[in-house]
């Protein structure tokens, strides 16, 4: 087969195998590619860094197992930072799997940072109908949330709930999401009450979230997995996300290589056909 034709008709399974190799092999390499912290992640970090011990942060997590690869490390980085700063925080979710997935991370990190459920943090659990829920939530948090995820009344947790009546008492809103729920928080909580808000979206959403960052409707953004890696760099934790960056870089190089080779082969073949008098 002509090499130019071959490059345009590579079996997709061959590409998948090469992609798999380019993702897997870097796990065994000791090299670490340099990572630069973007201004968006820097602003996200500052928004939490500026908080005082005891400040109340709403941790709105809306991801499920399907996007664990990106939102999981983001959640881990944010919770580590909140626990280091000794901020109180509440978990709230409009995705059914999120409260459990986040609780697992919080419990694991809580052992390391001596953070106690019901004192330093609370899980408000899964809620439905974001718009209507948040309409009531902003005016009367205790009356609307009522219980934690174990159906215990919020009045049982006076330490973590101290001084929290309306959404104005929230010092920072952190939304970790693979969906447009961040817009609902912006429209019904952060926008009208001027509550500072930061967003950790998946990479797919990054171009659209930049609009909100540019208009200063949100204070910072942690863009997908690369953002989580940058954040870990700031925290100095360097766990698995830093390893992930190598795999992502190698895979990107492979994809770019195939895009260039495929297009170059197509152009060369067209020129060859034109020279031979065939269809260009």
């Amino acid at each position: 087969m002509n090499i130019l034709r071959f490059l345009q008709t590579v079996d997709r399974r061959v590409i998948y195998v090469l992609l798999m190799l380019s993702v897997t092999a870097p796990f065994f390499l000791s090299i670490r590619l340099p990572m630069r912290v973007s201004p968006a992640t820097e602003a996200f970090y500052s928004a939490i860094e500026e908080r005082q011990p005891g400040d109340f942060v709403l941790l709105a997590v809306d991801w499920e197992a399907g996007t664990r690869g990106e939102n999981g490390p983001q959640t881990e980085a944010v919770i580590t930072h909140l626990m280091r700063k000794k901020c109180r925080f509440a978990i709230l979710s409009f995705a059914p799997q999120s409260p459990k997935l986040t609780q697992d991370i919080v419990e694991r990190l809580g052992k390391e940072y001596h953070s106690v459920e019901g004192v330093d943090w609370i899980n408000w659990g899964y809620k439905v109908d974001a718009k209507n829920y948040l309409k009531g939530f902003v005016r009367d948090i205790v009356g609307v949330v009522k219980t934690n995820n174990k159906t215990e009344p919020l009045t049982k947790f006076p330490v973590v709930m101290k001084g929290i009546k309306t959404a104005s008492d929230i010092k920072l809103l952190v939304n970790i999401t693979p969906s447009s729920v961040y817009q609902t928080y912006l429209q019904f909580v952060a926008g009208p009450l001027k509550v500072p808000m930061v967003v950790a979206p998946t990479s797919v959403m990054v171009p659209e979230v930049f609009n909100y960052l540019d208009s200063k409707q949100i204070s910072g953004m942690m863009p997908g997995l690369p953002g989580a890696g940058e954040y870990e760099g700031k925290l100095g934790t360097n766990t698995k996300v830093t390893r992930f960056a190598n795999s992502a870089s190698f895979a990107h190089i492979l994809i770019i290589f195939f895009i260039i080779m495929g297009n170059v082969a197509m152009l060369l073949e067209r020129r060859q056909n034109a020279r031979l008098g065939g269809r260009a």
């Binding site: 993702v23 690869g69 990479s203 797919v204 997995l225 698995k240 992502a248």
Partner: peptide
């Protein structure tokens, strides 16, 4: 947006590879 989509899907693959290894 398309590039960001590829990056997002790769992140999910990398997470699963990390799980396996």
């Amino acid at each position: 947006i398309f590039g960001a989509t590829i990056m997002a899907r790769l992140a999910l693959l990398i997470d699963r590879i990390d799980y396996l290894l």
